[in-house]
Nucleic acid binder design. Structure first.
Lengths: 271, 271
DNA sequence: CTCTTTTCCGTCAAATTGACGGCAATTGGA
DNA sequence: TCCAATTGCCGTCAATTTGACGGAAAAGAG
């Protein structure tokens, strides 16, 4: 466990610019408060971003510590590691890449990079160097929080004994009558004949096939096919269903296993 | 719903650019009004957009309040927070970013940013974080509404996270004598013979079948079948009962399990 | 038995919802 | 850079659902 945030650090020994300014929700969590409050370190030379982000994340139930300077940040991160760190790639003296490199020399702390739209070459670089994710500005809070949570979840799973990890086993192939789905191989057949699906199509079909006969609303199918940070139109699901039906019909003109429940959603027919 | 589309609201060509113009569907709540209508605050210096959006959202069933000025908006938002706010990023005196920042200092109100396609992608937009989502103009009403609903849904889930994932457990099938109802599959049988019901019919029947023998008033049945913000005529329930009986009679001419209690309501017969 | 209130049922037009071709934007490679 | 695949969304048309009536029938009241 990372050091329990002593975050309310009234760390008096500091100069304005480089100090860690701790923010810790006093009002506790009015949000999905997980087990323990998690601490996020923010490193960026732009004070505006620092403040805004800090406030926002704080409101999302995280404790935050901010640093405006890479060197100071490095030292603090080593001495008292947070649960996750967010770096701006581009910073004056020691930029995000250097900072990450130095940090990685001794720590496996999860890191998210902030990059600008036009700094693409660095993205690959950052990932190659061991950042866990990166986000290009502009981004919405929703996106950021979704990624933070995803990464934290991942890194916590990694800490736990690998045996009892919930969905860790290889996904079992699903066989439902004439349909067969193999998630691991991303392979689909109908009556033994292969059907080639795109990823999105596959996910939607899988969600339905896992519970044959059960009606899935469009929202449920969206949840199955998309990550938390994207929201697409309801009708988009229609489109995917349309494509699914078309592809299956190409193999079996009689195909009718995807049922529509007017006003409710879709279901994969029992069989 | 046609009546909604009209524009009773005078053009806000009015005076004080910053006054909050309340719009709330005439229907209002003369009744307990369960799920309060959700209110959206719009902040934009362009009166055209303000009016258009307001009318559109209003037609979608939201109440709206509009502000043409960041400072006034801030004050109003703090004093009387809506359920969600939509800011234009670029505004004369206090722009969306400042507004958000000030707001975030004390509130976790869900915010959607409106940005222009051609605004400096880096400078201002880079700061656009902290909003829950942002949409670049031009955008379709459908998209906007979809996002609004998504965010509202999300923030409401966050408010009440008592249990585990909502859609985790499947609703249990209900069996009452010769009747069998499976909510998950939207499947109904009578003596094993399938009966095909529409969603509304299903909900009404389910409400009665859950408490066999107990008389349900029309209002109770309405509550079961409609979301809190829809009101329909009492007689409409009669119609649905009529259709239910007809569909069951088609399968069993002797069917008589739906009883009428003169002056009180309907009940599903014990058995 | 007569009158009043409530319910039933057929009919219908309007609103909602679904299907699907097309298109434009994005992605990922050759 | 150009090409092909994927994907999200729009717009149109078709199908389904459904709220509302009006008159007939049934149930209560006196």
């Amino acid at each position: 466990m990372a050091g329990m945030a002593d975050t309310p650090n009234a760390d008096p020994s500091n100069t304005a610019a480089d100090s860690a300014i701790g923010l810790s929700p006093a009002s506790a969590c009015d949000t999905p408060c997980p087990a323990r409050q998690q601490t996020i370190a923010l490193v960026d030379d732009d004070r505006n971003i620092l403040t805004t982000l800090s406030i926002s994340l704080h409101a999302e139930g995280f404790a935050t510590r901010v640093y405006a300077d890479g060197e100071t940040a490095l030292k603090a991160l080593q001495e008292n590691p947070p649960d996750l760190a967010i770096f701006d790639v581009k910073m004056p003296r020691m930029d995000g890449l250097e900072l990450l490199k130095a940090l990685r020399a001794q720590s496996r702390l999860p890191v998210i990079f902030l990059t600008s739209k036009d700094e693409e070459p660095d993205e690959a670089l950052g990932l190659a160097m061991g950042a866990d994710d990166y986000i290009t500005k502009p981004f919405s809070l929703r996106l950021l929080v979704a990624r933070i949570r995803a990464i934290l979840r991942r890194s916590e799973l990694a800490k736990a004994p690998p045996e009892e990890v919930p969905g860790a086993e290889l996904p079992e192939p699903v066989v439902r009558g004439r349909l067969s789905l193999d998630p691991a191989r991303h392979q689909v057949t109908w009556d033994g004949k292969p059907v080639s699906l795109t990823v999105t199509e596959f996910l939607i079909l899988e969600a339905m096939a896992l519970r044959p006969g059960v009606v899935k609303s469009r929202n449920q199918l969206m949840d199955a096919a998309y990550s938390d940070d994207v929201y697409v139109d309801d009708r988009t699901i229609d489109s995917h269903i349309k494509r699914l039906r078309r592809k299956f019909r190409a193999v079996d003109p009689e195909f009718g296993a995807i049922d529509t429940l007017y006003g409710a959603g879709y279901s994969f027919a029992d069989g």
